[in-house]
Amino acid sequence: MIRPPKTLFTVSCPPHIHCGRTFNGLMLETILALMPAALLAVVTYGFPALRVMALSCSVAVLVEAACWKVMGRPQEVDNFNALLLGLIFSFLLPATAPWWLVTVGSAITIVLGKAIFGGLGGSPLNAALLSWASLHLSWPESMDIELNMLGSSFADPLAQLKHFGVEAVANIPLTDLLLGKQVAGLGVSHILALLVGGLYLLLRGRIRWHMPVSFLTGVLATATLFFLVEPGMHPSPLFHLATGTVIFGAFFLITDPSSSPVGRIPMLAFGFLAGALVMVVRVWGTHPDGVAFAILLANLLTPMLEKLRPKPFGLNISGDNHA
């Protein structure tokens, strides 16, 4: 005989408490952390930057909503993930990017970078970078930062380095670079603003230190190596930290949960590897920046890096190791 209980309580598996960190919160705080850089982008580049960011975000949200509809899946566009992906993607574009480029890129970010892999947590590649790379291969001129920003009063230090050698950048003060007096993707040149956002995420526990720190260490260590081995051929290692997409990459690109490994050792190895690859591309590659290709390449190695995991508790002793 089963009597229906008078009061219905919640019955569930443990744990019964939760840290309070939610996915929506994570997305919103990441967007918040990008705001200082987004504001300074508008200050520096004016209305065109705002236009690119707004267009990219809107297209991302609409395309994602359409994707779930077509795929017959529950609508989850309200979790701010598409908004964030759109914003991150727009940060990589030149402020003068034409509307069709932004639209196509933002759509690729969502469709090829996320939806095609089944949504959240499925993509093995960083969505924004995947889209950036596709555009870069299809329309190199339109994506060329230096070419598109000829009207700007600043220069792209990495392009200068590539084309004119180390003398061309020897006299750029580090403070200029930090304050965003350089040309790069519209949101990535304000190093200090990005640092503020990144530190905010770290302090709030939204991202963990392993990947940013090991990535920056990787860049710094490899740059120092080049600097010491071929004296006079390379700018100072700090120049490399403060240019291109390095800082943005350290806090907002390699930390993408879906395409990065889990576990302490894999995360450290992943960050360091990506950092070292940045320098390899910058010194030996044809592309001046290198961060995007370095991270994409490291993404591909993620499954291998994840094998660097410790033995499960107790299994090494009993000889009962199934792994």
Binding site: T10, S12, L120, G122, R208
Partner: peptide, 30 residues
């Protein structure tokens, strides 16, 4: 007794692969 609504409820969400669970697991599993 843990009051209703004291914590965000468990849901049938996809795993976003953030790795938080891996960092805290004392059994060192995934």
């Amino acid at each position: 007794v843990i009051p209703h609504g004291a914590f965000p409820p468990v849901e049938d969400n996809p795993c976003l692969n953030c790795g938080e669970c891996v960092l805290v697991c004392p059994s060192r599993i995934l």
